[in-house]
Amino acid sequence: MNKQTLTTAALLAAMVGGALYFTNFLQSPVLHLTHSMKSSYLNGLEGIQHAIDEHYHQQKTIVELREKNRYYEKELLNLHQVADEYQKLLQEQNSSFQTLPKTALVRTLSYVRFGDPHRVWIEMEHFDPKRVYGLLYRGYAAGIVIGKGSHPMALLNGDVKSTYAVNIGATNAPGIVRGNNGRQMIVEFIPTWIPISVGDEVLTSGLDRIFMSGLKVGRVLSISKASGYQSAVVEPYFYGKNPAYFHVITQIR
């Protein structure tokens, strides 16, 4: 092999090596830039997809809410019509009877004592310690409010001293419900000649002037008879999870 051939081979080797070196040298920033562009593209694509999904769900929710709003508007008109006819009927009979109660939103402060989930202090304006108030949670009878000294104390449904008048089932069997320091309640003094059944709904009667009539209390789980009366074990719709707020019935007209 002559000298010229060796020189040409060395030159080609140098050129190939240089090309590989510069290729690796340039490849790193190019790949970094490419990855950045891909990442930005995918992030943008995901952002667009999320925006589309959110828009779709929002649009679906808006449609559903509009349908519900139309339904409630129709029901509200029906209720207004019924209320108007009812008031006219009362006027025709020269009756002063009114049914609209007054309620107040009250805040839970703390347990009366630790270990007892059935008694809580509440914050209530214009409280009269000589009165007994009905306590509501989301429209369900939740217990009563009494005075402990000058402070309002809520006795929730599980408390043995939380008592109020109720009716049971389609027969409107009267009774007095109370807590049993557990998850169930007991309805006592139900006349034996009035039939009741397991599964019957228990509603407030309003005869004690603590609640208005017709508020839901719970359902009958079991029935027993003793001393000329019936008793029923009831699963209440509200049991003391001690929410932050209740409503109190301050006046029944």
Rank of each mutant, 00 (worst) to 15 (best):
H151I: 13
H151T: 14
P152V: 12
P152S: 11
P152I: 14
P152F: 12
M153N: 10
M153V: 15
M153P: 04
M153D: 10
A154V: 10
A154P: 06
L155S: 05
L155K: 03
L155D: 13
N157L: 07
N157A: 14
G158D: 10
G158Y: 13
G158F: 12
D159V: 06
V160D: 04
K161L: 13
S162L: 02
S162T: 04
S162C: 10
S162M: 05
T163G: 08
T163P: 02
T163H: 11
Y164S: 09
Y164F: 15
A165T: 09
A165C: 06
A165N: 11
V166D: 00
V166H: 00
N167G: 01
N167D: 07
A170G: 00
A173D: 04
G175V: 01
V177L: 04
V177R: 01
R178C: 10
R178V: 06
G179A: 07
N180R: 13
N181H: 07
G182T: 14
G182S: 15
R183L: 11
R183S: 10
R183F: 12
Q184F: 07
Q184T: 15
M185E: 11
M185A: 09
M185F: 02
I186N: 12
I186D: 13
V187D: 04
V187E: 05
V187A: 08
E188K: 11
I190V: 11
I190K: 03
P191E: 06
P191H: 07
P191A: 05
T192W: 01
W193P: 01
I194L: 10
I194S: 04
I194W: 10
I194Y: 08
I196M: 09
I196Q: 03
S197L: 04
V198I: 14
G199P: 00
D200Q: 01
E201Y: 01
E201L: 08
E201M: 14
V202A: 00
V202E: 00
V202M: 00
V202F: 00
T204I: 08
S205T: 09
S205F: 06
S205P: 08
L207P: 00
L207Y: 08
L207R: 15
I210F: 09
I210A: 08
F211Y: 15
F211P: 07
F211C: 04
M212S: 11
M212W: 12
M212L: 13
S213Y: 06
S213T: 12
G214A: 05
G214D: 07
G214L: 07
K216W: 02
V217W: 01
G218R: 03
V220D: 03
V220F: 03
V220W: 02
V220K: 01
V220C: 02
L221N: 10
L221A: 12
S222C: 02
S222N: 04
I223W: 04
S224D: 13
S224N: 12
S224L: 04
S224Q: 11
K225M: 07
K225Y: 03
K225H: 06
K225E: 14
A226K: 14
A226D: 14
A226Q: 13
S227I: 06
S227K: 12
S227Y: 13
G228H: 07
Y229C: 04
Y229S: 10
Y229H: 08
Q230T: 05
S231E: 12
S231N: 15
S231D: 10
S231G: 06
A232T: 01
